[in-house]
Simulated scan of single mutants.
Amino acid sequence: MTTVTWEDPFCGEGNSCYRIGMDGEGGSYIAVAGQEAVYVSDTADALRQLIRDIKAGKADHLLAD
């Protein structure tokens, strides 16, 4: 099992909180806070770009009204 060091949760509006983590080999992870055992893994650069795009509003079309 990979040991992941998680950062403090990032919480946006509402109750959606996410955590970003990194393992000892430089792999990056993102998970819903409180559910770190179920995560998405990718390169650090890919996850950084994903977060930048979300913060820039490029994922607004995925959100339900």
Rank of each mutant, 00 (worst) to 15 (best):
M1V: 11
M1S: 12
M1T: 12
T2M: 08
T3D: 11
V4N: 03
V4H: 00
T5I: 09
W6E: 07
E7H: 07
E7D: 13
D8V: 11
P9Q: 00
F10Y: 13
F10T: 13
F10G: 03
C11W: 02
C11T: 12
G12Q: 04
G12K: 05
E13D: 14
G14P: 08
G14K: 11
N15Y: 12
S16Q: 14
S16E: 14
I20M: 11
G21T: 10
M22V: 11
M22E: 14
G24T: 10
G24D: 15
E25Y: 15
E25P: 06
G26Q: 04
G26V: 04
G27P: 02
G27F: 08
G27M: 11
G27C: 01
S28K: 06
S28D: 04
Y29R: 09
I30C: 07
I30W: 06
A31Q: 00
A31H: 00
A31D: 01
A31S: 06
A33C: 08
Q35F: 12
Q35Y: 14
E36C: 05
E36M: 02
E36S: 01
A37D: 13
A37P: 03
V38C: 06
Y39K: 09
Y39V: 04
Y39I: 02
V40L: 15
V40T: 12
V40N: 11
S41T: 10
D42R: 06
D42Q: 06
D42S: 09
T43W: 04
T43A: 01
T43V: 02
A44S: 14
D45G: 08
D45I: 07
A46G: 08
A46L: 13
R48G: 03
L50G: 06
L50P: 00
L50A: 12
D53G: 01
D53T: 01
D53P: 01
D53H: 01
K55A: 14
A56I: 04
A56N: 07
G57L: 01
G57I: 02
A59W: 10
A59S: 13
H61A: 11
H61Q: 09
L62R: 06
L62S: 00
L62I: 03
L62D: 04
L63E: 11
L63W: 12
L63G: 02
A64Y: 15
